[in-house]
């Protein structure tokens, strides 16, 4: 327990239970349990247990090196001929559906748990909102898009290298994902996030623990005004951080869900540009 933790635990016990179950308002070691913690624990153990069992002990292509099995093993989604049918044990793809179901429940419970804890600590809901963005990505790729296309086989295989293969094939399947505008925005935000993170981390580290030298927030502001012309400020940088990261994930949702449902050829998607109405009247070529 941290030095100041007892006070906040007492405060948390005094918060009336609304969404969460007051009975389970307990801590196991450092972890808060709660109703959603129990749900997350059960389904998390079930799902990851099933995955490890399949990959390490059932996969017909397994080697006798467990680390190698972990890296190259996979649970493939149901074959295309199954469509959206829910397959049962023994049939191909059952374990994929099982793990995806367990993972989805776990992720949802984890988000609810973050909401609970935010309530107990009397702080805002930004953390569960950010986690919900990532959860929406999982749901979009593994559930919504397969349903839109009418086949579970559209989901990605659950495996370390296997999902990289899927990603590669997915990009080239729609001719070239680099031409997907939402992919482009998503990647820009991804690199932008790393850039913002690097700048913020470096800025705080460069000014931290220099109070004795008279270094304050004002020095950071002056530094940014000097070299960049603008200092976004202590609150602004975190708002930028939150939205850059969240938008990155949401844009990638768009880029996945539009592929195959609406747009088949991301290169050909840009055909409209050359023949857009605003170019008419100019003589070319």
């Amino acid at each position: 327990m941290l030095s100041f933790e007892a006070k906040y635990r007492q405060e948390a016990m005094a918060v009336p239970a609304r969404a969460s179950f007051g009975l389970l308002k307990i801590w196991i070691g450092r972890f808060y349990l709660g109703f959603w913690g129990v749900v997350a624990l059960i389904f998390g153990v079930l799902g990851s247990g099933a995955w490890f069992w399949q990959v390490l002990f059932v996969d017909p292509n397994r080697t006798n090196n467990p680390l190698l099995n972990f890296i190259r093993g996979q649970i493939a989604p149901p074959p295309p001929e199954v469509g959206l049918a829910i397959t049962f044990d023994g049939s191909k793809g059952f374990w994929w559906l099982f793990v995806v179901f367990c993972a989805t429940v776990t992720f949802f419970a984890w988000m609810m748990r973050q909401i609970d804890i935010s309530r107990l600590l009397k702080i805002g809901y930004q953390v569960p909102i950010a986690f919900g963005a990532v959860l929406s990505s999982w749901v979009t790729i593994q559930i919504v898009r397969p349903i839109l296309l009418g086949s579970w086989s559209e989901g990605f295989p659950l495996g370390v290298i296997a999902h990289l293969d899927w990603l590669s094939a997915f990009g080239y399947r729609y001719y070239n994902f680099f031409y997907n505008p939402f992919h482009a925005i998503g990647i820009a935000l991804l690199f932008g996030s790393a850039f913002v993170l690097s700048l913020h981390g470096a800025t705080i580290l460069s000014a931290a623990r220099k109070k004795s030298e008279g270094v304050t927030e004002e020095n950071v502001n002056r530094f940014y005004w000097d070299f960049f012309g603008y200092s976004i400020g202590e609150i602004g940088i975190h708002r930028l951080a939150f939205w850059a990261a969240v938008m990155c994930v949401l844009m990638s949702n768009l880029c996945f869900v539009l592929s195959g449902t609406v747009v088949q050829d991301w290169s050909g998607f840009w055909n409209f540009w050359d023949y857009a109405p605003w170019w008419s009247g100019f003589a070319f070529n």
Partner: peptide, 29 residues
Amino acid sequence: GSTVILAMHGATILATLAYGAHREIDEIE
């Protein structure tokens, strides 16, 4: 991972704005 850390950190600080967690240079000391 950078994007995850950025989202976690940004969201955490935004959630605790009312308690002044964003004054990081002071909070570190």
